[in-house]
Design a protein around this nucleic acid. Structure first.
Lengths: 222, 222
DNA sequence: CAGCGTAATTTTGAATTCATAATTATGTCA
DNA sequence: TGACATAATTATGAATTCAAAATTACGCTG
């Protein structure tokens, strides 16, 4: 049984629902990086007691989204330069693997899906619609992960992606970087269509490295 | 109630300590794969209430070591063929990366440490002391991870390793496989000493692939 | 008024309680 | 006896309670 399956089964429990909700709050910066997690407030807001909320916080802490300080509660973690330098290489290795596996398993229908997403993404780029661009971008990466047919890989990738999605760093691209990213995605599609796993892996790795550099640059400009 | 002083938990964050303890119980098969997690018994054994124990179970569930069934409690997950086929490729990619990074950062002193561990491991092999062999084997892999200077990578690797360490599958090697594994480790040491990241990565990847095949073979023989 | 020490309040960590779901035990009837 | 329905028991999920720690408020001294 895969991890994904087991998570689907337990979806109904309160604490799991809270994990999802808190993740969303953190990614949308409704809970500010570096800020306190207001336990009581959130309990009131969600209409639950502290027990399931605190269970959810323990899970989020093990995923690195919050930090638990003994007797001082939970704090939203901040994206630091050191963390970015750590996470992107790992994410690169995992995305590279996902590219290789995807080329082995992807169906023609799935390739068409990615092609359609890619076209939409290009259109968003031409409209300079950053929100739409990023939303579709994520869908493409997720589609490749799905095609890789490896739930463990998908879970690991998404956990690390989440950590990088805190705050809006990734959305802050210069015009030049945005253009380059689109070019990289052209190659990604091309190698996926050709089912060239080796080249796709290399391209995804470079893509992640470029993203790392871009995020670091942004962090240093702050 | 009897106080089990030596086992009673004294550290500050109770749930964290419990995560560790439960992991150990699961890895040592003191909690049997596929079996129920006896909440009340464990509470008595550890001298804690259900609240922190249940918090720990939520974390273990998100790591894939237990499965939570609504209204039916926690169950120790079993290592399945499917899971092995998922986890080892991911672990391979991560270990390969750790090898590459380790070659970049490892100090001479650290190399000497690994060399000493390697010698001990060979000695254990010659004595056919499987327990000692595996213990040292893990120390070597951990030393390489440490040398990689990437905490995120280390955490990810260790989480996946844990999932494969449930039950004693890995310890069930044929004589032939054991010999091959030792040969692979000779190459690992050699490339590490030479600080040849590329070759070390390739070797570690192959090492993981061989381990995967060995575990699958064992699972199928059951 | 600033700085410091102490009391009041709030927050946290963990035990306890309580309603409900699941499991087991008991009793009935063919 | 064995299948089934129902009662008793147990376990679970979540709210509540409680002691201890941390934070804030207050008042005193200089």
């Amino acid at each position: 049984m895969t991890l994904h399956t087991s998570q689907t089964i337990i979806r109904k429990s309160l604490h799991h629902e809270l994990v999802d909700r808190l993740q969303t709050l953190i990614i949308n910066s409704e809970l500010k990086p570096g800020g306190r997690v207001p336990e009581k407030e959130l309990c009131d807001q969600f209409g639950v007691s502290r027990t399931p909320l605190r269970e959810a916080l323990k899970v989020l802490a093990s995923d690195g989204l919050v930090r638990l300080e003994p007797n001082r509660g939970a704090w939203v973690t901040q994206v630091t330069e050191e963390e970015v330098e750590e996470v992107f290489p790992v994410l690169g290795a995992l995305e590279a693997l996902s590219g290789e596996l995807a080329c082995k398993h992807i169906t023609d229908a799935e390739i068409e899906e990615v092609r359609a997403l890619h076209a939409d993404m290009i259109e968003s780029y031409e409209r300079r619609d950053l929100d739409a661009y990023f939303s579709i971008n994520q869908k493409i990466h997720r589609a490749i992960l799905t095609a890789a047919r490896n739930g463990t890989l998908a879970t690991s990738c998404q956990a690390l992606s989440l950590r990088m999605q805190r705050a809006r760093y990734l959305a802050n691209m210069t015009d030049g970087r945005w253009f380059d990213a689109v070019q990289e995605h052209e190659k990604i599609l091309q190698y996926l269509v050709a089912r060239d796993g080796k080249q796709l892996a290399i391209t995804l790795l470079k893509h992640m490295e470029a993203k790392r550099a871009s995020v670091i640059k942004w962090l240093q400009s702050q």
